[in-house]
């Protein structure tokens, strides 16, 4: 199983723990990730300024993958939404495709976009292409006794028509299922499918932080040991800004925020140092120690029996 890895801009600068853990986990479960030097910004930031440039930037990335003959694995949900939307648009709209290709100096007829390549979020690849059986067979350490709150974010499943109605955007379950493979418990909580608020962060910080605060409160009430997510933008809200939100609303959360590959990596028996836990802003040390003590006890049980 081979994919071109599309990092986007936020993951390699603000969420390197996400990138590190993804690479380790991919290696361990047999997904080959190829880095293409042509990959750059997905185009999303200019969407509301200049729609044609947005299409052009996204198309340039899609062409690079098509030239390499690879499907794309995306880490950031906003990048996934952009690349999926544009690949479908260019596959079905001849006029727009011809225009984009002539601007990029490529001949028409060679590129089919969504007809030739598939763009998928990492989590969808793990859930849909790899599947729980294959991942389960690689699990070395069960994370039983750990409870986590899954956060889906928005662009992973919405708008649902561009994602072939994969999963259910109103009642999603793919991340829950992936969490349960590790034997950790995935819980339901109030506002589970809500937005993190990052989209409003630079427009009105107070509103963005209060949207994130509502969810942090709900997770805290649910008693989860950590939040598990899959988008570096959501990570910026819950991990990077968690302390600020706590100060602003006179409370303290101390709630570790894990990217899903970090959680899966622990279950695959990968050393925590290799999963980038030192880069988590809210330290997950006590949670990690609980996991490690438990797995050591299990080892001893096996040994003595």
């Amino acid at each position: 199983m081979k994919y071109a890895l599309f990092l986007g801009c936020t993951a390699p600068t603000k969420a390197r723990n996400y990138e590190l853990s993804t690479r380790r986990v991919a290696e361990a479960i047999g997904i080959e990730l190829i880095d293409l030097p042509e990959f750059e910004c997905c185009g999303f930031p200019v969407k509301s300024v200049h729609y044609e440039s947005f299409i052009l930037i996204a198309a340039r990335n899609l062409i690079a993958a098509e030239d390499a003959g690879l499907n794309i694995c995306v880490l950031c949900s906003a990048c996934a939404g952009t690349l999926v939307e544009v690949s479908r648009y260019l596959a079905s709209n001849d006029k727009a495709r011809q225009k984009v290709l002539s601007k990029l100096g490529k001949e028409d007829g060679k590129y089919g976009f969504a007809q030739n390549i598939k763009v998928k979020h990492l989590i969808r690849i793990l859930h849909e292409d790899l599947g729980s059986e294959k991942i389960s067979s690689k699990i070395k350490r069960k994370l039983s006794g750990i409870t986590v709150a899954p956060h889906y974010g928005c662009h992973y499943l919405k708008p649902s028509d561009i994602y072939d109605n994969y999963d259910d955007s109103e009642n999603p379950h793919s991340l829950d299922e992936l969490i349960e493979i590790t034997a950790a418990k995935s819980i339901d909580y109030l506002e589970k499918e809500h937005c993190c608020g990052a989209g409003v962060l630079a427009i009105n910080e107070d509103i963005a932080l209060s949207i994130a605060q509502k969810k942090l409160d709900s997770v805290k009430v649910s008693g989860a040991d950590a939040i598990v997510l899959m988008c570096p933008f959501c990570g910026a809200m819950y991990d990077e800004n968690q302390k600020r939100i706590g100060t602003k609303f006179q409370t303290s959360y101390n709630l570790p925020v894990l990217y899903y590959p970090q959680l899966l990596g622990l279950a695959l028996g990968i050393n925590r140092k290799l999963l980038g836990f030192n880069l988590n802003k809210v330290k997950a040390d006590s949670l990690l120690e609980r996991i490690e003590t438990k797995s050591m006890q299990n080892e001893q049980c096996k040994f003595s029996s």
Binding site: C154, H155, K158, P159
Partner: peptide
């Protein structure tokens, strides 16, 4: 401006109106 483009409205609209896209157009 407060719209975060989360697409919840778009997914739920029974008449298929992409409200997030309307907000985007207003911003533009």
């Amino acid at each position: 401006w407060i719209c975060a483009s989360c697409f919840t409205c778009t997914v739920r609209c029974p008449k298929g109106v992409d409200i997030a896209k309307v907000m985007e157009a207003l911003r533009q």
